[in-house]
Design a binder for these strands. Structure first.
Length: 325
DNA sequence: AACGTTTGCAACCGCGCATCC
DNA sequence: AGGATGCGCGGTTGCAAACGT
């Protein structure tokens, strides 16, 4: 027995909203508010719509001060940074972008940003991709089941150190570098706790703190909920410790959800890497102009390997000016 | 011009969580 | 305490427009 539907599907209109419906909903809410009950709202107005549909229409389209399209460079940076940091928490990301809805940002990411960032390398990769994915599936692996079931977490085989020395996003310099590329700057002071937004970039303090703190939390072993609960409070004078590969490895193994949603990063990286590993003459650096010379590879407790990404200089410029390259 | 494919986006769906009773 | 209800979220779908052949 499943959950009861929120409304009688047969008695509600679905599909695109008409101008009349929009006008009805908008004028009612502007005059009376939602009344705190979306389910009852359509009956009050005389709309043959589901309450959830009304809510969605209002929040994503009719609500005042909604912006559509025309994402700015700053917004791109914030979206990329937060996505890398917290994944597909679109509502949280939207909260940092006034006038933007989670749906809008989600669509923008899925249709444009993601492709802009990685489309170039996919083009170069061309038709080899499918072949490589197939060949990868034959590689045995000891990683957990979630990874096995996820097509974007390809099964990875431990690579001899002589070929790929494991690399880690485990040092403060790397993290700082990433954040700087994403639009922020830190003080010359090497203390990670001191974040100084660069006036050159129009990212407000809160956004920068959020980005920074999320990155720090990403590499710490704090539960994800703590990350979210503290993002909107001022940065405490916390000393973040990163005890080398072991801690990062622990985070990967025990906080898998933090990297969920970044599968496409791993997909791209692994495909390129696997091509060269398997004897192809593909050059990692050539195919990944923004990635560091080798993808960071993280050894896990159970013998598998996972990979991360560090954006290199110019990566986000490419987002805005893809033709200039 | 016709047809097929890709892209972009609005809208829907189902689940988890919070609140109420 | 726990069932019912509503809300909010992320993922997915459907469709029209744009683009390519």
């Amino acid at each position: 027995m499943g959950r009861a539907p929120c409304c009688e599907k047969n008695n509600v209109k679905r599909g695109p909203w008409s101008i009349e419906e929009d006008a009805k909903l908008k004028s009612y809410i502007e005059q009376n508010g939602t009344g705190g009950n979306w389910i009852a709202l359509p009956q009050k107005i005389g709309l043959k719509r589901c309450g959830k549909s009304c809510r969605l229409r209002w929040l994503n389209y009719l609500r005042p001060n909604i912006k559509h399209g025309g994402f700015s460079e700053e917004e791109d940076r914030i979206i990329c940074s937060l996505y890398i940091s917290i994944g597909s928490r679109w509502s949280i990301i939207a909260a940092q972008l006034p006038g933007r809805t989670d749906n809008d940002i989600k669509n923008y990411w899925n249709t444009k940003l993601k492709k802009k960032l990685f489309g170039k390398q996919r083009q170069k990769q061309g038709s080899r991709k499918g072949k490589e994915i197939n060949s990868m599936s034959s590689i045995s692996n000891n990683n957990n089941n979630n990874m096995n079931q996820n097509p974007f977490w390809p099964e990875l085989q431990p690579v001899p150190d002589s070929i790929n020395e494991p690399r880690f996003i485990n040092d403060h310099t790397s993290i700082r570098k990433l954040l700087i590329k994403l639009g922020g700057k830190f003080s010359e002071d090497d203390q990670l706790t001191n974040v100084v937004p660069n006036s050159q970039y129009p990212i407000d303090n809160l956004s920068m703190q959020l980005m920074y703190q999320n990155h720090i939390n990403l590499i710490s072993s704090s539960p994800i909920d703590n990350v979210l609960n503290t993002t909107l409070s001022p940065l405490p004078n916390t000393q973040y410790n990163m005890d080398g590969p072991a801690e990062f490895e622990h985070m990967i193994n025990h906080n898998q959800q933090k990297v969920d949603g970044l599968e496409f990063l791993y997909e791209d990286m692994f495909i390129h890497k696997s091509a060269s590993i398997s004897g192809g003459n593909l050059d990692w650096e050539a195919m990944n102009p923004y990635a560091l010379p080798l993808p960071p590879i993280v050894a896990s407790n159970n013998g598998g390997f996972q990979q991360g990404i560090i954006l290199q200089e110019g990566a986000l410029d490419e987002l805005r000016y893809p033709m200039a390259q």
